Computed example of a mutant assay.
Amino acid sequence: MGELVVEVERSVATVLVGGLPQSAVDLDDDRVLHFEYVQHLALAVDALAPAGPLRVTHVGGGGLTLPRWVHATRPGSPQIVLEPDAALTETVRRELPLPRGHRIRVRPVGGEEGMAALADDSADVVVLDAFVDGRVPAGLTGVEWLDAARRVLGTGGLFLANLTDEPGLRWAARVAAGARESFGHTAFVGLHEVLKGRRFGNVVLVVSAAPLDLYTLRRAAASAALPTGVMPWSDVARRVPGARPMRLADGTTTPSPVPPDPRGWRVR
C-alpha cells in the first residue's frame, strides 16, 4: 500500500493512498457528495430502495463516505462495511470520526471472504465500491461472487457496483452480463460522456432480481447536478454484442482496465 494521506481543503477531506484519491468526505454535511459516481450510487438508492432505514452492506470502505450518507439520510440503518485495509480504516476513524448514533460496523476482510460469511437475506442493498491500485479486483467480477451477493440480498434487494472502464464499456458489459445471469435485471447510470464512450470513466451498475423502475431512475438522473443518463441492458447488448459473463471457474475474471492516469484518477 502507498502512503496514506488525508488532505483538507475548506470543508472537504480527501483520502489519498499512494497519491490516488480514494474518498472525499464533506466535513460540514454528510449528505453532500463530491465525487460524481458516489452521487450516482446515492441517486440509485433514493430512486429504487424503499423508504426508511436500510440494511446496507458495503464492499470497500475508503473514507466511509456512502455509509455516512446512508446514516444521514436513512437514520437507524444498520450497515456492514467489508474493508481489508485496517490501516486505512484506523486513519479514517481517527481523522474523520463517524457521526454519533451511527450503526456502521467495519469488518477487516475482503469482499470475497466477507460476502461468503454473511447470512442469507441479510441486506436490502449491497454496494460494490472496491479498488486495488485503481482497479476493481478480478475476484469481485465473476458470476460466482455475484451469486454470493444475490444470496445475501435475497429476492427484493438492490445491488450497486461502481465500475471503471475504457470507451466502449466492454469490460463493464461483461460484469453486467454476469449480474444479469445472477439476478435478472441490470442497467448503467453514468455521465453522458462516459456512457457514450467519449472517455475512460465510472459507471454505476444497477441490479435487481425484480424489474428495475427505469422511469423513476431516469427521472432521478435527469435531476442530477451533472449530465447523467441511464443505459438499460438492451442498449448495452446492442453496443457490446456477445458480452459474456466472467467466471472464476474458467479463469475469465479480470480486474477493470488500468486508468489512463492512475495518480489522477478518483476511484471512490
Rank of each mutant, 00 (worst) to 15 (best):
L88M: 09
A149C: 14
T14A: 10
V32Y: 07
M115N: 13
D213H: 07
A221H: 07
T65Y: 00
R199Q: 07
A225W: 08
L169I: 14
G242D: 08
A117T: 12
H58S: 10
T253S: 15
T141S: 11
R31P: 08
R239E: 14
R218G: 15
R199L: 04
R244F: 12
V38P: 02
S182V: 10
R135K: 10
L64G: 03
D29K: 07
A210M: 13
R198W: 14
P21L: 05
P262G: 13
P167D: 11
R55I: 12
T252A: 11
P50I: 12
G197K: 14
D250P: 05
A51P: 15
D121E: 09
T186I: 10
V81M: 00
P167M: 10
R198K: 15
V12R: 08
G156T: 15
P84Y: 05
V109W: 04
V175A: 12
A220P: 01
V152W: 02
D124R: 11
G19R: 04
R107P: 03
V81I: 12
T65D: 11
G18F: 06
A47E: 14
P97N: 09
T252Y: 06
G184F: 06
P257Y: 04
W171H: 15
L27N: 09
V109H: 03
V38L: 03
W145N: 12
P67L: 01
F200I: 07
V32E: 12
H34S: 06
V32W: 05
E181I: 01
G114F: 05
A123S: 07
V70D: 02
P21F: 02
A148M: 11
E3M: 14
D29T: 05
G157K: 00
E113W: 03
D29F: 14
E112M: 12
G197D: 12
P260Y: 02
G139Q: 13
A172F: 01
A47Q: 01
L214R: 13
H58A: 02
L191D: 08
Q79E: 13
P78C: 03
M1L: 15
R218E: 15
A72T: 03
G52E: 07
P262H: 13
T65S: 08
T57P: 04
R238W: 07
G168S: 06
S208H: 05
S234T: 15
D235H: 10
L191W: 00
D165C: 08
E95G: 05
A172I: 02
T89Q: 09
P167Q: 08
A176K: 09
T216S: 09
A176C: 13
R100D: 14
G60H: 01
P84H: 00
H102G: 11
V206I: 07
R10C: 05
F183S: 09
K196L: 15
V109R: 05
E90Y: 03
V136N: 00
D29A: 05
L88I: 07
R105H: 09
T164L: 08
S23P: 01
V152S: 01
G18L: 06
W233L: 14
H192T: 02
A220K: 00
D147G: 00
V236D: 14
L41W: 04
T254D: 04
D29M: 15
V25D: 11
V6C: 09
R100F: 11
